[in-house]
Design a protein around this nucleic acid. Structure first.
Lengths: 236, 236
DNA sequence: CCATCTTTGTGCACGCGTTCACAAAGACAT
DNA sequence: ATGTCTTTGTGAACGCGTGCACAAAGATGG
């Protein structure tokens, strides 16, 4: 089994650390909000508070992009919006297909955060033929068998998987075969992909489990734990 | 403005590193799949492949929980499922409320990964009164004004926010006031919470933007980039 | 033109996370 | 019982990310 690498082991793409790249969308959102309020400039301290990060970290992040600030003044909001957008590749059009139009797929199709950032939903696909033709977010749902043609015709390079876990790998294989090189996976499965294909995973229940861990710790803070205790079930 | 800390700066809760905690749900899922296939034992190598991680990392992760493996054999699947579940606090019942029953909220309510891991949806809440009473995933949608009573009556400690960004902070304040101490936030906003309250964020569009960044890098690999060039728009 | 004040950009140190590589431990065969 | 073989558990090294703290840079006022 060719187990594809899901996420690069901290590849520093063109000198920009992965951790910084992951924060750029955060800054971009905060800056967009400032821009809509016609705020001309912003200091690292203010912007950091708005984005929920440390100001030193923010300044270091920006320093990887270049020296876009003015000492004593701060950063020009519009200019920075442009620079970050360009760096993230959001100044160009990214056609995406969403596969699996259940509740989650519909939520994604309706999500305003996509269209406003250069992402264009090229098509909604589902294996359920009875869904075909129904309008979701103004787009007709199309049958999964049209996948290859749609990807080719629209030069789609990004696919979003919102199918049940069982279908995710097959959909992935078809997407990759058709030419998709980036996949956002909402299905709770580990996907195998060839080298050169990026996969990012969003798992709804994992986050909840992490919260439960910390919540348990809070609750059991005063209480005496049996801790190293042996459970009822013993190993073979 | 009291800007609440969103995520602890790598607090090592009870000796278990945060990074390890974040991977435990991954292992748990892989182990559950093995358990369903009645596989009795599994080696770190096999399990690591199934979970999509490095085997050395997996062994080190498990070593924080204790010595649950048998050298020369591997790990007992059932035993490990139990240990990880207990560590994550999934052996107990966690009532959660979901606020904002749009497409995303409905998707979350229907998501099977919750119920199967100790999470019980105590209530679905929405500000839209016309939704009240409608059944989603077998549960009636209730009005947001019932929030405080529901949280108190069911001893809810975990809240899930799937509202539009504009409503997220107000909902958060009400949840926290009512006694919720862990929040999973799907709204694209930075939430302010008092100390002692955990917030985890899932942002649908951020992941897509990170993919776009890498995709752009792939596309522009051979091409000559102007790179440090000055854009048409100049800063003030 | 000079002094002062604000805010950036970054050198440096520290700590966490990852990975390697191997000794210890146990299973299993003879 | 003894040796071999498999696989765990972990010591140690390394690299990345974070945050402090400050010098450099520029704005602003006199």
């Amino acid at each position: 089994m060719a187990t594809g690498r899901s996420h690069r082991p901290a590849t520093r793409s063109r000198g920009i650390p992965e951790a910084t790249v992951a924060r750029l969308p955060l800054y971009l959102r905060a800056l967009t909000a400032l821009s809509e309020r016609s705020v001309p400039t912003v200091s690292s301290e203010e912007l950091a508070a708005a984005a929920g990060v440390n100001s030193a970290k923010l300044r270091k992040d920006f320093s990887y992009l270049g020296s876009y600030g003015t000492r004593g003044v701060g950063y020009d909001v519009e200019y920075l919006v442009y620079q970050i957008s360009r760096e993230l590749g959001l100044t160009q059009d990214w056609p995406v297909v969403i596969v699996g139009i259940g509740n989650l797929g519909a939520a994604l199709a309706n999500y305003g955060g996509f269209a406003s950032r250069g992402f264009r939903v090229a098509a909604l696909l589902d294996a359920d033929a009875s869904l075909a033709g129904r309008l979701v977010a103004g787009l007709p749902v199309r049958h999964i068998d049209e996948l290859e043609a749609i990807v080719a015709d629209n030069q789609v390079s990004i696919g979003v998987i919102a199918t049940p876990a069982g279908a995710a790998q097959e959909v992935t294989d078809r997407l990759v075969n058709a030419g998709v090189t980036s996949i956002l996976n909402f299905a709770p499965t580990v996907l195998s992909v060839p080298d050169g294909v990026d996969v990012r995973k969003v798992d709804l229940s994992i986050e909840l489990q992490i919260l439960a861990f910390h919540e348990q710790r809070k609750a059991g803070e005063g209480r005496q734990e049996p801790d190293g205790d042996v459970p009822a079930v013993m190993p073979a």
